[in-house]
């Protein structure tokens, strides 16, 4: 009996299991338990949530493997962890400790300003951020088995998440109306591999699962991203920087399932306590924005 591991079907498939779910940033095993109990479909293990990375500055790197292992021990749901853009050795370390998904993330300080990791070289699947269709397809070309629109992490301002989701969805909509002979020029224009442009046109969607991220702070934000056509939602600082993380986490999980039911959305939005304070992205200096990291 032939047994194959680390195949493209396996990598893409785990992301398909996460669809319609919420992936939550956690910094301790206790947070991870709260997230699991609230109904998270996976957790992202890290040392600092993006809002704290912003506040504290300095170089943001892969988390201590010991912390990630403790979080893996604490919960039965999949555990993801972040490595720096282009830092393939951090990725090797994360694969060696057995994380279920690696996020090659702009939230950490990039290690390479020209290249991303060649993700096909790994058995563990990767998720990468994007701001538009070209960036999404470049990452898939390198082997990302899941995409998340970047938004602007650690702000609690959903405007960039909406901008990037609308960019991807809108570009795919236009692509589906193009004649086949237009695809090569379009691939050149957006800097994407031709074969993936063709596949995206045929499918009418990205060839891998696409979550929203970066600025989701309320159940309404999460449902907004779902109604825009995202497959699920990452929530970073929005949960554990709020007044009542357990309650808010459970409410966001419910909002993603019932994203098309305003009566339920109203119900779950009640009495959640203080949301994270948030920062208005339009008033942020360009140097503080991280979504531009990625090539």
């Amino acid at each position: 009996m032939e047994v194959k591991t680390g195949t493209w079907t396996e990598k893409k498939g785990l992301a398909q299991m996460l669809k319609g779910g919420v992936i939550m940033d956690v910094v301790t095993p206790e947070h991870a338990k709260i997230a699991e109990d609230a109904g998270a479909c996976a957790v992202m293990a890290l040392e600092r949530v993006p809002a704290d990375i912003r506040a504290q500055g300095g170089v943001a790197r892969m988390s201590d493997p010991e912390l990630i292992l403790k979080i893996m021990d604490a919960v039965s749901i999949p555990v993801m962890a972040k490595c720096r853009i282009g830092h393939f050795v951090e990725a090797q370390i994360l694969e060696a400790i057995g994380v279920d998904y690696i996020d090659e993330s702009e939230v950490l300080t990039p290690a390479d300003e020209a290249h991303h990791i060649l993700k096909h070289n790994f058995k563990v699947p990767f998720v990468c951020g994007c701001r538009n269709l070209g960036e999404a397809l470049r990452r898939i070309g390198e082997g990302a088995a899941m995409i998340r629109t970047k938004g602007e992490a650690g702000t609690g301002d959903v405007v960039e998440a909406v901008r990037h989701a609308r960019a991807v969805i809108g570009e795919i909509r236009r692509l589906t109306t193009m004649a086949d002979e237009e695809l090569m020029s379009y691939a050149k224009e957006i800097g994407a591999p031709y074969e993936l442009v063709k596949e995206t046109k045929e499918l009418g969607r990205l060839p891998v699962v696409n979550f929203a991220a970066g600025g989701v702070a309320t159940p309404a934000d999460a449902a907004l991203m779902m109604q825009l056509g995202m497959d699920g939602v990452f929530v970073g600082s929005g949960i554990f920087k709020s007044g009542d993380p357990a309650k808010r986490a459970a409410a966001i999980v419910k909002a993603v399932t019932h994203y098309n039911d305003p009566a339920i959305l109203a119900e779950v939005s009640k009495n959640l306590g203080e949301p994270m304070v948030g920062r208005n992205v339009s008033q942020m200096p360009e140097a503080e924005r991280i979504a531009g990291r990625g090539w």
Binding site: T9, E10, S76, V99, V124
Partner: peptide
């Protein structure tokens, strides 16, 4: 373990029995 189950089928199941994602596999 403690989690909500329908209990409709008389089967006992072990979750994640083959390991983590890197151990996920395809076979005939």
């Amino acid at each position: 373990r403690d989690q909500p189950l329908l209990g409709l089928m008389d089967i006992k199941v072990q979750r994640n029995a083959f390991g983590r994602q890197v151990d996920s596999f395809e076979t005939d």
